[in-house]
């Protein structure tokens, strides 16, 4: 101890210098924003990387709930899209903006059962009448069309998958709007067939096939798939198009059930017209 005091006293000039310089640097860092920020940044570089790594690992534990939240949020967002609105053309405000009304409502649902290998395939979803699900509602996913609700119980519903012998979806070629019925011939879970496309349409492999505006069930412009190949049947003036489906039916987890609010109104009107014209 005594030696230490002697040592410090001997070099008092150096130690005094050190003390005063420390005071100066303390003042610099304390009072000058720029230097302080720099200090915090460089000291943070270490802690930040540690925190980032730990968060990246932690993230995996919340993936499940996070996915569910995202699906829910997506459903809400899709409800707000212009395509989900019904344009009532007789109502304009002063700047000629059409008055918009909700036409489609998206409800997020989880696939609890699924089949792809049968001729008539079904899905089961965890939403039922208690969630407002009714028969004939459309089921889609973020990648494209899935099917149509067939039976509804209180908490579940079964969906007639696109991979079903009775499936008929009104589909159109996105680039020019020519439409036809899309059916599934059982050719495998990733292909379907689009019929009745006129031969004057200039088709090319890779063209997008989307839902047509004439469907009561599906909103317009929902992706179905892309043109894989097409051929003209002998003696017909229509193409038969082989469609590569955009949805991977083997990997369905979260889907959206689409409610068309005007479906009943439109359907009743159309049926009445057909009935009247029969006589």
């Amino acid at each position: 101890m005594r030696n230490l005091v002697i040592f410090i006293w001997k070099h008092n000039f150096f130690f005094l210098f050190l003390i005063i310089e420390t005071i100066c640097m303390y003042l610099v860092v304390q009072n000058n924003y720029y230097q302080r920020a720099k200090f915090i940044n460089s000291s943070n570089a270490v802690s930040a990387s540690v925190l980032q790594t730990s968060a990246a690992i932690e993230e995996y534990f919340y993936l499940k709930s996070e996915n569910e939240n995202l699906a829910k949020e997506n459903a809400e967002l899709r409800s707000q899209l212009l395509a989900s609105q019904f344009v009532s053309s007789n109502k304009y405000d002063s700047i000629y903006k059409p008055a918009l009304r909700q036409k489609y409502i998206y409800t997020e649902a989880k696939v609890v059962n699924n089949s792809t290998s049968r001729r008539n395939n079904f899905l089961t979803l965890n939403k039922g009448t208690s969630n407002g699900i009714k028969e004939n509602m459309a089921v889609i996913t973020s990648t494209g069309v899935v099917g149509q609700v067939q039976e509804v119980s209180e908490n579940f519903c079964t969906v007639m998958s696109l991979l079903h012998s009775k499936t008929t979806i009104s589909a159109k070629i996105k680039k020019d709007g020519s439409y036809g019925p899309l059916i599934w011939n059982g050719e495998g879970f990733d292909y379907a067939t689009l019929n009745d496309i006129p031969t004057h349409v200039k088709l090319a492999a890779g063209d997008s096939i989307v839902t047509s505006p004439y469907s009561l069930t599906f909103p317009e412009n929902i992706m179905i798939g892309t043109v894989e190949s097409f051929q003209r049947e002998a003696g017909k003036y229509f193409y038969t198009v082989k469609v590569k489906l955009s949805t991977d039916f083997k990997k369905l987890t979260h889907v959206y059930v689409v409610t068309n609010i005007f479906r009943d109104e439109q359907n009743a009107l159309e049926e009445k017209t057909i009935k009247e014209n029969k006589d």
């Binding site: 005063i20 005071i23 100066c24 640097m25 003042l27 610099v28 304390q30």
Partner: peptide, 24 residues
């Protein structure tokens, strides 16, 4: 040197910078 540097710092709004340099 410290007093001189701090006096300058007060006017330059650079707390401690001139003091550190002058003490050195």
């Amino acid at each position: 040197a410290f007093l001189l540097g701090i006096s300058i710092d007060m006017f330059y709004d650079t707390a401690g910078m001139h003091a550190a340099a002058t003490v050195f």
